[in-house]
Amino acid sequence: MVANLGWQWSLRITGLMTIGVSCPASLLLRKRIQVPKREKIVDVQAMRNPLFALLFSVSLFTAGGYFMPYNFMPSYTVVALGESQNWSTSISSILNAGSIAGRILVGVLADFIGPLNAMFLTLLISNLTILAVWLPFKNLGALVASALVFGFVSGSAVSLVPVVAASLFGVKRLASLLGLLFFSYTLGSLACSPVGGALLDKYGQGTNYTPLIIYGGAFFSAATLLLGILRMVVNSNLRVKI
């Protein structure tokens, strides 16, 4: 669509497709649990709680690293590896296909080992995928593998944040806490692609993606470390389901 219609109409058509899919899907939604009416729209006082402050920071750094591969792996395929434009779109498809499967299967895993444990595992694997596969191995095979694995685990690292919040602070406070957590996503997203693109232009001369990859990996490293601290503060017994 971008090649034939331009990016403006591509965005419009994508938006209309989203409306066409989401509206019928919303009719199928059913309330599964009764949630008490929230006392506050946004629970700002929660930031005084060290556990929530840690979770807020984790979600911020996770969002900061999450969008980097989605935004730059496709162009990396063409610019850095010299592959065709077809491979660029294929990498986007691989990332999103992995995400579809991962959000479902990791959710099942969270039922067995606990959402906090599952989220730590997905963050750790996401981090290793960026810094131990994408960064050092500059070939198409490694990129395809990292795109598939990252797509599989990274989506759950974001979607599990509300579940972890509910398990730690209760369902009653969840609606108020989500406002702050989604705000952290916004901050992380703003620190993600714009800065990454600037690093690519200034230090990579538009072709060397190493500074950008390290920058994205640093976000996931920080998120993994902070979530590990949160996990140990909640319960230092690694065998406990949390």
Rank of each mutant, 00 (worst) to 15 (best):
S22W: 09
V106K: 00
Q45E: 07
G98Y: 01
I130H: 05
I19K: 03
K40T: 02
G155F: 07
F152T: 02
L148A: 11
L148Y: 03
G65R: 01
W87P: 05
G206K: 03
T89V: 13
N86V: 14
R103S: 10
M47T: 08
G6D: 09
P50G: 02
G64C: 07
W134V: 00
N4P: 01
R48Y: 03
V21N: 05
A198E: 14
A198M: 13
F219S: 10
F52K: 06
I13L: 15
I125K: 00
A218V: 15
R231N: 06
Q85L: 15
R231P: 01
L54H: 00
G20W: 06
I41A: 09
G102H: 07
A46Y: 05
S93W: 12
L128W: 06
L199N: 07
P194I: 08
A25V: 05
A25F: 13
A63P: 04
P136V: 03
V158Q: 10
S146D: 07
N86I: 13
G216S: 07
S167F: 12
V171S: 12
F220G: 03
A53Y: 00
I91E: 01
T129Q: 09
A222I: 15
K172Y: 14
L178V: 10
L238M: 05
A198W: 13
L16Y: 14
T122R: 05
V58Y: 06
A53W: 06
L16E: 04
A118K: 02
S57W: 12
V78P: 09
K138D: 04
S159M: 11
R231I: 08
S236Y: 15
S156G: 09
G170T: 08
T207D: 12
S236C: 11
S92N: 06
A3F: 06
A198N: 06
L123N: 00
Y66I: 10
T129G: 12
K138I: 08
I19S: 01
L178I: 15
L181G: 08
I104Q: 01
A165L: 10
E83I: 03
V35Q: 07
G151D: 07
V144I: 15
